[in-house]
Amino acid sequence: MVPTMVLVADDSCDAHRREALRDLAEAVEGRGEAPVVPAFGPTSRVNDTVRAVEGPIAVVPAFVAGGDLASAEVFAGLDLDGRVDACPTPPLGAVPSIVAEMATRLHDAGWTRGDGVVLAADGANDQEERQEVTDVARILSRRLRSPVQVGYINGWAPTVADAVDRLRDTQGARVFVATWRLVGGAEVERLRELGATSVTPPLWPCELVVDTLLAQHRAAKARLAA
């Protein structure tokens, strides 16, 4: 039996995010590989949705590690006690193909060697997610063959604004912001107000995101079958 993919994210405070997440869920289901149930909203609503889905289920974060604090908190609050038919997967992290897509977007935006780069992450309460952000910056730096500074939107220092200002002041360089976020919304709009040379769009829409979420589902399916 093919497990149902339950996509989890917070969409409670942002209509644009809500629309983008639903588009993503439809795109994943459109591949025909697995039934998909969107579980979007605050923790209580997400738990109600998960409880209503008959197993087996693969519970897949619809966000990137360190890229969506609100969704990470919702995911951490999932109640899967007694659900032996449920397999949660980690959020997408330093996947080389996704980082390569970010590098392509920077080049498409006009980035060249000598320009500054800030990886804009949201922040998280989980040290593992913070390490994932560090790993993303390291892989992106290797692909660009240029330094990448991490900046945070919420919760941690340095902020994205501080990182952009520091690069502009110390290097006198153009500064590009690489958005480490799966879907758009108000937080991404805030990045565009910082005065950077360019801000790359969130990772979705991109078919690579669908590919990677389905790979998460396949891994969960294998664990459930073991």
Results as ranks from 00 to 15, higher is better:
residue 220 A to Y: 10
residue 157 A to G: 11
residue 172 G to D: 14
residue 98 I to D: 03
residue 125 N to R: 13
residue 150 V to M: 06
residue 74 V to R: 04
residue 48 D to H: 12
residue 67 G to R: 06
residue 39 A to H: 03
residue 208 L to P: 04
residue 51 R to P: 03
residue 9 A to L: 02
residue 18 R to Q: 14
residue 225 A to D: 13
residue 133 V to G: 01
residue 28 V to G: 04
residue 187 E to K: 15
residue 159 T to I: 04
residue 54 E to M: 07
residue 133 V to Y: 00
residue 55 G to R: 04
residue 76 A to T: 05
residue 98 I to K: 00
residue 217 H to R: 14
residue 11 D to E: 10
residue 208 L to M: 09
residue 141 S to C: 01
residue 146 S to V: 00
residue 120 A to Y: 00
residue 70 A to F: 09
residue 2 V to P: 12
residue 155 G to E: 02
residue 177 V to G: 04
residue 205 P to D: 05
residue 64 V to S: 02
residue 83 R to V: 09
residue 209 V to E: 13
residue 84 V to I: 13
residue 221 K to T: 14
residue 209 V to M: 13
residue 185 G to Q: 07
residue 91 P to Q: 03
residue 167 L to M: 11
residue 134 T to N: 09
residue 46 V to C: 01
residue 28 V to T: 07
residue 177 V to H: 01
residue 92 L to E: 07
residue 194 L to A: 06
residue 205 P to Y: 05
residue 61 P to G: 03
residue 177 V to E: 01
residue 21 L to N: 10
residue 18 R to I: 06
residue 121 A to T: 02
residue 87 C to M: 12
residue 107 H to V: 11
residue 64 V to I: 13
residue 170 T to N: 12
residue 57 I to C: 10
residue 187 E to A: 13
residue 129 E to H: 15
residue 107 H to E: 13
residue 190 R to Q: 12
residue 117 V to K: 00
residue 132 E to M: 01
residue 165 D to K: 12
